[in-house]
Design a protein around this nucleic acid. Structure first.
Lengths: 139, 139
DNA sequence: TTTACATATCTGTCAATGCGAATATAATTT
DNA sequence: AAATTATATTCGCATTGACAGATATGTAAA
């Protein structure tokens, strides 16, 4: 059983966005579900670092995880407040406009199209576009 | 001469929003210019704490200060990136919807209407609505 | 059940930030 | 110029969070 979630807080929400690695992760997710192994390859950072930041985002209520065999897939979920949802949408739009973020997305696209070039990704499940993330409020 | 500003960074921008005191300050400013003494009274926190957080917001490029005699007035300025501007606007909208933030604004309104009830505010310059904050981009 | 792989968590260290208390600076008044 | 008012900065300490490296857990394959 998962440890009890702290109540959603505005402060925590913004703190979660206040780290470059986490912003890069959110940018890579965008509107799709991405396997952890892709993050590790694309960002070229130690796996433990990626995992820690994903956990942080999860605790802040910004992403959720789904296990599929030995792979974990992460995706963005809209937070339980309209206001937060709209801020997050704007943030994602902002990410789409940043050069560095664009470069990350390009590397991900490349890895998806020809995973053979990324030895570590042989056989890993590809990112999949998902239905537009909805706020937990708009049921 | 002011010490050199660090370049605007997305990370820094969100870190600046990731503190409850700073969110309350931004909420009180909204679309007006507010004197430090009002913040101290309304939030009922030590002056040094208020000042430190205002300095943080200033360094993050989210507010500017203007001196008028012995009083300092702070106001929100839109950051030098369209994306940041839009996120900030959404954030302010979100603040307007939060209960606790509403209560702060109510106290400010009260202090403005009858500063006599707030001894410390006798003679202090009242908050003034300003032209809608514009991004430094849209000159 | 052993092994291998993917991911998560723990450990120790370091830097950043929060805080109250005290002090410094700037403008105004006396 | 001294005293007063408004605000800013500094100090010492506690907390948080980032990091690399080591280790633990969960799942599947052999």
């Amino acid at each position: 059983m998962r440890t009890k979630q702290k109540a959603f807080s505005m402060e925590r929400f913004f703190l979660a966005l206040g780290d470059n690695t986490r912003l890069r992760l959110l940018n890579l997710m965008g509107d799709r579900e991405v396997c952890v192994c892709y993050f590790v390859e694309i960002l070229d950072q130690p796996q433990s670092k990626i995992s820690r930041h994903l956990a942080y985002l999860r605790k802040a209520g910004i992403v959720t995880a789904r296990r599929e065999g030995k792979w974990m897939h992460y995706r963005i979920v809209m937070p339980p407040h309209i206001g937060a949802t709209q801020v997050l949408q704007q943030t994602l739009a902002w990410l789409r406009e940043e050069r560095i973020m664009e470069a990350d997305r390009a590397r991900l696209a490349k890895a998806c199209c020809s995973p053979r070039k990324f030895v570590a990704l042989q056989g890993a499940p590809r990112p999949k576009v998902i239905a537009p993330a909805t706020s937990s409020l708009s049921r």
